[in-house]
Every structure is written in structure tokens, then in C-alpha cells.
Design a protein around this nucleic acid. Structure first.
Lengths: 185, 185
DNA sequence: CTTTGATATATCATTTTGATATATTATAAC
DNA sequence: GTTATAATATATCAAAATGATATATCAAAG
């Protein structure tokens, strides 16, 4: 039993809020859900054609002048398809952290490198965390609809897990630096 | 500039500790690093051939009777390649949490489903957390080498972020259940 | 002695990623 | 005003990763 194509669900989910072009969809993904899900033009555009073919969405040509512009709209069928997927048991949750991979294998390099890699990770997380926090605060002050609550909760997930990451970074750096106990062993 | 093939690095990292077969490599990935990195036979076996071709690893046929068995060993070249990758700036860290995706789009379903999905996530995390904790404790009592410290730190990352997840699950469920404020809006 | 589960290699379709190509329009700089 | 740059917009493709399946051996349980 093959898994559903998740990019299709991302598209349906976004179109369930508002009509969008493929380009808009990419922007929404990057600005709102990129910390837990990604999408690329390489899978968005083919997916749009597939979804239209299955009549989960409708397209309307909105080209102005020489600039092509195709706006997509979700159908009743598409809404049902989205609902079914959300209600489905089973969800695949994966972390793919190259930083942890490098740390796990750090014996292959040296302690300085290991600490440096954690610092790079820390910087990245701090930047992303400050964006997520702003996002989170804006949503918190505007909890006037069910969907805003869901947006808020996902952003909160990001904030709380990133805060845990930063605490871990401190511990990890300290432990690697306090390495005398391992000298020569 | 193309990114390195990460499965190659996983294989080199594991072989840097001990000689292994492709099947062993899959087992090591599943048991030790699967919470932050995955691998499948579909990319392990072709990668082994590629790595041998680039003389980063060597194979020795260890077949017994009719049972084929190819054991791989890392070369000096392979160790250098691994070290270079670890020292490289830049690491890609990605979360891919279908549970958050479903929550983000939960307006498309209903609150009961949203809460149920969080409970499913919670159960999964609790199970994985208990395994990670055991793993972590074992490593903590055996911090006698540099590599054990790195193994411990990666496991600790898992424990601390999973604990943060569970706290979030509580908040999220409560918030969705205390939904009267949104009724009819 | 037979079934089940673990060991072991291998392949392949589907999905996703990352990079690039192409062209238009808006905006900022000079 | 014109020129450079950034944003908008669609599209394709190679490479990588995932998920499923095929095939076969061997060990252990019943």
C-alpha cells in the first residue's frame, strides 16, 4: 500500500485557505511551514497538474500581459481528500540532522571541530528561533479563529523544541571541552 | 556545487568503528541513529559499490557455504574523506513531521481528529523516549572513550527534545479542548 | 520436519531535492 | 529616463532517498 504524496496534501492544505499560484505556494511553504516541511518547484508544479487531473483543484488563467499566471482553487472533492488524509492513522515524523550525524562520527575528526559544528548549529537555531518567536507572538495576539490556533500551536512546537536544542548545545559544548578525563585513553 | 551523498558518509562513519556488511550497516542505522538519520537497502548497497570504486572502502568476501556475505573495511583514504566532510562548514538539518503538517491544516478536519493525532504522536514519542533513555543511561555509565561521549551526546539530544515534545503535547491538547472561545466564530 | 524469523544481497518505481533555464514585471539607483 | 537588480512566475531534470519487493540461506522453535 503506497503512501500518499505529501506535497499534494501540502498544496491542498494551503489552497483550503486561499487561492494561490504555484509560486505563492512555494512562498507560503518557505515562510510558514519550512521548519517542519519543505517543498520545491520541482515537485510543486507537477503536483498541481496531477491534482487538477484528479479534480481536487481547478485552475484559472490569470495571465496579465506577457506574464503567465495560473491561480488554483480547491474543489469539494479536494477538501474531502484533505480531510481523509488528516484523519488517517499513521504519520511519518522524521528528523534529518546532519549536525547530529557529524557529532556521532566526530571521533573521525577532532574536538575543536566537534565544538565548532555545535556552535554553527546554535547560531542557526538562534536565528530561526527569534523568527519563530515573533511569529508565535503575532499569532498569540490574534487567536480569533480555529485555524489561527493551529498555526500558533505548530509555531509553539518550534519555539519549545528549539529552546530545548539550545540548552543541549550548552551541555554538549561543556562536556566536549571538559575532555581531560579522556586524554590518552 | 553538488552536495555530498550523505549515505556515503553514514557508511564511512560506521565503518570507521568496525568492519560491517551492508546488512549490518542497516541494523546499526536502525538501532543507533534512526531517530536523526535513516538509510535503506536501496541506497546502502549501491553506495557500498560506489565507495569501493572510489577506494574509500575495501570488500572481502566472507561467504560461508551458499550464504553470500561481503564485509567492508574503511581505507586511509576513506578516513580522510570522512574527516573532511565532518570539518566542512554547513550542515543541513531538517525536520519532516507529518503530524505538524496535519495539525497545521487541521481546520480541514475537526477538533477530535486534531487531538487524536497529537495522542498518536505522543504515544510514539513516549515509546521512543524510553528506548533513548535506556540507551542514554547505558552510555553515561560507560563514558570511557571519546566516541562514547559523542554517542551519549547525540542520545541526550534525543531525550531532551523528546521531553520538550511531550510537554508541548499536553499544552496543545489542552488548548484544542478548551475551544469554547472559538465556537461560532 | 516444518514453519518462522533473522541474515544477506539486490533492484526498481516513486518521491523529493537541488539546480538551472527562461521570461516578465516592479523597484531602486544613478 | 534608463539601467541594474530583485521579485514574480512556470518549467524541467539529474541526483538522492524512500518504500516495497524479490530471492535465497541458515538458525531456532515447535
Amino acid at each position: 500500500m503506497a503512501r500518499v504524496k505529501r506535497i499534494n496534501m501540502v498544496i491542498l492544505g494551503l489552497l483550503n485557505h486561499e487561492d494561490l499560484t504555484g509560486y505563492d505556494i512555494k512562498k507560503r511553504i518557505d515562510s510558514s511551514i519550512s521548519f517542519f516541511w519543505n517543498g520545491s518547484f520541482g515537485n510543486i508544479y507537477p503536483a498541481l497538474k496531477e491534482l487538477e487531473n484528479d479534480s481536487f483543484i481547478l485552475s484559472s488563467n490569470d495571465s496579465v500581459g506577457g506574464r503567465e499566471r495560473i491561480v488554483y482553487h480547491i474543489t469539494q472533492n479536494g477538501k474531502m481528500h484533505l480531510k481523509e488524509w488528516i484523519s488517517e492513522q499513521q504519520a511519518v515524523n522524521e528528523l534529518r540532522y546532519e549536525t547530529l550525524l557529524k557529532l556521532f562520527f566526530a571521533k573521525g575528526a577532532d574536538k575543536k571541530t566537534a565544538v565548532h559544528n555545535i556552535e554553527l548549529f546554535e547560531d542557526r537555531i538562534k536565528k530561526d528561533l527569534s523568527i519563530l518567536k515573533m511569529h508565535c507572538n503575532t499569532l498569540k495576539d490574534n487567536l480569533n479563529s480555529e485555524d489561527h490556533m493551529y498555526f500558533y500551536l505548530t509555531a509553539l512546537f518550534g519555539v519549545e523544541s528549539y529552546e530545548a536544542y539550545l540548552k543541549w548545545c550548552d551541555k554538549a559544548k561543556k562536556m566536549i571541552n571538559a575532555n581531560d578525563q579522556f586524554k590518552g585513553r
